[in-house]
């Protein structure tokens, strides 16, 4: 079947099988940051943004993205790099395998939640599993990152 969508801002037209998952579709089009972890909707590694909302690309047919905008880590390089520095500063990154999905969800959270509490952060990221870290360093890095963003916003508003 023919499908049309936007991937990281680029329009795409392609033929594909009806049962192709969004995960495989975006990888076929060069978004190799999107990885297959559990494929059972549990680990969050395959997170992409569909019309701005984080979804599991392993659990959604590419056909469902017809006419929609899909964003992967490749499409948010600047923001990802900025947050990556905070991760590195806290020593939160170990093998780094979980990072693509994790970062996509953090960027979504930043847009969705205003000034989230620790509990709200934990809850929002409950669907992102990391088998190396104990999540503590990651939490520190998120809090530092959100604080930094807040300061930047306050500075800009002055």
């Amino acid at each position: 079947m023919l499908i049309k969508m936007w991937l990281n801002g680029e329009p795409i037209r392609d033929h594909m099988d009806a049962d192709m998952l969004l995960l495989d579709f975006v990888r076929r089009h060069g978004a190799l940051s999107v990885k297959r972890g559990c494929e059972t909707a549990n680990c969050g590694l395959c997170t992409v943004l569909l019309e701005g909302k984080p979804v599991l690309s392993c659990s959604i047919l590419a056909a469902k993205a017809e006419g929609k905008h899909v964003v992967t880590l490749e499409g948010v390089q600047k923001e990802a790099e900025e947050f990556g520095t905070f991760l590195a500063n806290q020593g939160a990154e170990q093998c780094g395998f979980c990072n693509p999905g994790f970062i996509m969800n953090i960027l979504a959270m930043e847009k969705e939640l205003k000034d989230p509490t620790e509990e709200e952060i934990n809850e929002y990221l409950a669907g992102n599993l990391c088998r190396c870290s104990g999540f503590v360093g990651q939490l520190r890095s998120i809090q530092a990152y959100l604080k930094h963003k807040q300061e930047v916003r306050a500075h800009e508003a002055e």
């Binding site: 984080p54 979804v55 959270m109 409950a126 669907g127």
Partner: peptide, 10 residues
Amino acid sequence: HIVGVQFRNV
């Protein structure tokens, strides 16, 4: 408590 936000968006 159902899995995660990305799951519940689907």
